[in-house]
Design a protein around this nucleic acid. Structure first.
Length: 782
RNA sequence: GAUCCCAUUGUCCAAUGGUUAAGACAUCUCGUUUACACCGAGACGAUCGCAGUUCGAUUCUGCGUGGGAUCACCA
């Protein structure tokens, strides 16, 4: 037989699925398994980590489709945010900031119309069985509407507020950001001990941020620190600048850190913020939105340059006691790596700090797979320190639907029927008759992607309601996507967004996380090209939910072999099933056939249970082991001669068992390797089984003819053990596997195999089987 | 510093309070012709360290070591 061309098969099958709308959603069904599909950001190439995660969720969905009959599995793309903005700017060679928001969004939607189908190709090639006719983008008008509505609902319920507040700010992107968007990054810096002056004496204070000196509003010492006891309440002179600030007692000053004296500046970090509030100090703002200093000689300098300059000045003024180089971690913006600042600007927030316990309770109502991922959610909620800042001072995104009257400071919101709305495009009047000022800011992208269940639900006019059955996602976005979705569903609908959440692990390479910066990324398209999609999926099924998997190219070979084996075994079976109608059954099944089918039934039972618990990797292992070992290596060998040479019921019995067994095994394999199983189904089974696609067939149910049979399956295993013994003898004797032998069986085995002796003879090449004292294999010489 | 995950053969990855600790790749020895050399048979080869619980621990508990993730630390 010619080598099968996997790629040809896969593209043919993919086209078949698409032409026949195999994955179209049937909303009439009573019970629908609904999935809150992760919308990928299409600005980057698909990563093998994505392929890994999406494959795992697709195993679950494909199983559920067969088991439950109806699936809601939409597809979406997350195009709302910086990465897409940059992609479009680059491709179209434009600057979004120079366009009106409405024009840019329009351009974006046009761009996506052309670009998205190409980007979705990766998902289709992998065999992800979404209904691609139900596709949303997080920037399309529908999504904008849902997102804005959710904002308005939250405002009405009192969960949203607007406030002037020192917010976590990215000077590079020039926007406020949320706690979840912070990352740590190590920087080397100068750690300087400065001479402040109190009553003519030096007071030493260590800092990494001397440029904040102009914003110094106080210094703290610990009330228990004997060294500084008598200084409390006095004033201290800030070096170089010669203004005075009070010396205050505060527990937050740690005796053993630095010199034990802590300088408070507005705002060096979030503790400064707390401290200033606690002591009702007056803040001084010296950092502008663009990250420059607005004070004296340092005006217009970036923080980093200002630091350098002030250190030089301090040095020449003799105000530095000592300087030490050190490396420390700084909070940076996860999108650009820029150290964040705290800048006082008006921003919109969703109040969550007062709801930590409720949010933990919501998390408890959801089933987490694996369970330990639940702890990551809890830890995140417990560690929250800020309300969710949802406004972004960006150009591109879902507009915040609000206006403000400058005369009466009234906030004005649109009617629901007018959504989606861009305040910049619509004039709104205040009650007082004054024209209101439109809100320029947009919503945090997470504020929109946190309503993916509602956006998806909107695609089918609300026919699918919360909670969805499943949320699949990666563990890197528990604190963002999972968390925010839970927040929104709770605050808007007092509901959990989904009943179950399954979390996929990462793909590593040699134990290291794959990342673009390390340059160790493997692209799924090259893997598919070299092996095939089924092989990639088969590999992805090798690890449990939540577990990382080390990528090794050789592991792809295993999948490819299996696919080849499936094709070959099927060929063999159908070569011997000519004119078999799929139903004809002998009056009595041969014992081996009967037991084989019983074992298939037991397999179905186990595999079903595993899939129900989302343990696709165990399911895979079970089917795989059974198919390769029990079926191909043993059962097929056992019945081979009977189908070649047998007649009447003896042959029919084997044909019946082969057909039935193979048909079931293929269905069990279908969620994991959908292409090859579909290929085989279309070629051989469809004319008999009538289902349009194997993926629309119902999941096999375990059938047992009688309890007696269940008790007899051990015979099969014993049979195989004896077979193995004989093979071993042959191997040791360096004989071929089909060399003829005379076989002596012990009494127990001889009696046990009473109904299967003929088959035993066939498979072992035994010309004679007799009962004897000891097991013995004697070679017949020719 | 805190929390969580992980540690099994040369490599990747299963399972298990007690029998022979599974499989894949690699290695070695054979075989093959009415499914498959992308094959078949056989062989070789493993539970991180210490203590505890137990009749019995690779499995449970604690500590240690090593790896990873997340959060914090930014005087």
């Amino acid at each position: 037989m010619a080598k099968p061309d996997f790629h040809e098969i896969e593209s043919k099958i993919q086209k078949f699925w698409e032409d026949n709308k195999i994955y179209s959603t049937n909303l009439k069904s009573k019970e629908i398994y609904s999935v809150d599909t992760p919308p990928p950001n299409i600005s980057g190439k698909m990563h093998i980590g994505h392929a890994f995660g999406y494959s795992q969720q697709d195993f679950i969905v494909r199983f559920m489709r067969m088991k439950m009959g109806s699936i809601f599995y939409p597809f979406g793309t997350d195009d709302n945010g910086l990465p897409t903005e940059r992609l479009i700017e680059k491709t179209k060679k434009i600057k979004s900031i120079k366009m009106s928001r409405a024009d840019f969004v329009k351009l974006c939607l046009e761009f996506l119309k052309d670009y998205t189908p190409e980007a979705i190709k990766d998902w289709k090639d992998l065999g992800i069985s979404c209904d691609y006719n139900l596709t949303y983008s997080t920037i399309d008008p529908q999504a904008q509407k849902v997102s804005q509505k959710s904002f308005l609902d939250l405002y009405k319920k009192g969960h949203v507020y607007k406030e002037n507040f020192p917010t976590i700010w990215c000077p590079h992107c020039q926007t406020s950001i949320a706690q979840a968007e912070l990352e740590d990054k190590e920087f080397s810096t100068k750690f300087s001990t400065l001479k402040f002056e109190c009553e003519g004496k030096d007071l030493l204070i260590a800092t990494t941020r001397p440029e904040m000196l102009p914003a110094c509003v106080a210094v703290f010492v610990n009330p228990k620190d004997e060294r500084y006891k008598d200084l409390v309440g006095k004033k201290v002179k800030v070096p170089l600048l010669d203004f005075e600030v009070p010396i205050l007692e505060d527990e937050s000053a740690q005796i053993d850190k630095g010199t034990g004296v802590l300088m408070i500046c507005s705002y060096g970090d979030r503790f400064d913020l707390d401290s200033i509030n606690r002591h009702k100090l007056e803040a001084k703002t010296i950092i502008e939105k663009d990250g420059t200093i607005n004070f004296g000689d340092y005006s217009g300098l970036k923080v980093k340059d200002a630091r350098k300059k002030i250190l030089e000045n301090l040095e020449s003024a003799g105000k530095i006691k000592k300087t030490k180089e050190m490396v420390h971690a700084v909070n940076v913006h996860d999108k650009c790596g820029t150290p964040i600042e705290f800048v006082n600007t008006p921003q919109w927030f969703i109040r969550i700090m007062d709801k930590k316990q409720e949010l933990i309770d919501q998390g408890n109502k959801i089933k987490w797979y694996p369970e330990f991922m639940h702890k990551r959610y809890d830890n995140w909620v417990k560690g929250l320190e800020w309300d969710w800042s949802i406004s972004r001072n960006r150009h591109f995104g879902v507009p915040i639907p609000a206006w403000e009257c400058e005369k009466c400071n009234e906030l004005i919101f649109p009617e629901e029927k007018d959504l989606p709305v861009d305040p910049l495009q619509k004039e709104m009047k205040c009650k007082c008759g004054e024209i209101a000022v439109p809100e320029k800011m947009v919503l945090d992208t997470w504020a929109t992607s946190s309503v993916t269940p509602q956006i998806a639900s909107d695609l089918v006019k609300g026919k699918i309601k919360l909670p969805f059955s499943l949320r699949p996602q990666g563990h890197d976005i528990i604190r963002t996507w999972a968390f925010y979705t839970i927040v929104k569903s709770y605050l808007v609908e007092e509901e959990i967004p989904w009943k179950d959440i399954v979390i996929s692990g990462n793909v590593s390479l040699g134990g290291e996380k794959m990342s673009k910066s390390k340059g160790n990324v493997v692209g799924p398209e090259e893997v598919i090209k070299k092996y095939c999609a089924d092989a990639l999926r088969y590999w992805a099924a090798g690890s449990k939910l939540g577990m990382d998997l080390d990528y090794q190219e050789k592991d792809l070979v295993t999948g490819k072999k299996l696919i080849n084996k499936i094709l070959n075994a099927t060929n063999f079976v159908f070569m011997n099933l000519e004119n078999y109608d799929g139903k004809a059954c002998p009056k009595k099944l041969e014992e081996v056939d009967q037991i084989f089918l019983t074992k298939v039934g037991m397999l179905v039972e186990r595999v079903t249970e595993y899939f129900m618990n989302y343990e696709y990797s165990k399911a895979k292992q079970e089917i795989d082991g059974f198919f390769w070992s029990d079926f191909c290596d043993n059962y097929l060998e056992i019945v081979k001669k009977r189908v070649y040479q047998g007649e009447g019921d003896k042959k029919l019995s084997a044909q019946y068992a082969l057909y039935k067994g193979l048909s079931i095994m293929l269905k069990l394999f279908a969620p994991i390797v959908p292409f090859v199983t579909e290929e085989v189904y279309q070629k051989h089974f469809k004319k008999i089984e009538k289902g349009k696609s194997i993926h629309l067939c119902s999941w096999p149910v375990p059938e047992f003819n009688s309890k007696k049979e269940l008790n007899e399956v051990y015979k099969f295993d014993r049979f195989v053990r004896v077979l193995e013994e004989i093979r071993k003898e042959k191997s040791n004797a360096q004989k071929s596997m089909n060399s003829e032998i005379k076989l002596v069986l012990q009494k127990e085995d001889f009696e046990l195999f009473n109904g299967m002796l003929e088959d035993l003879g066939n498979v072992t090449g035994a010309v004679e089987i007799i009962e004897g004292q000891d097991f013995k294999v004697e070679f017949v010489s020719n």
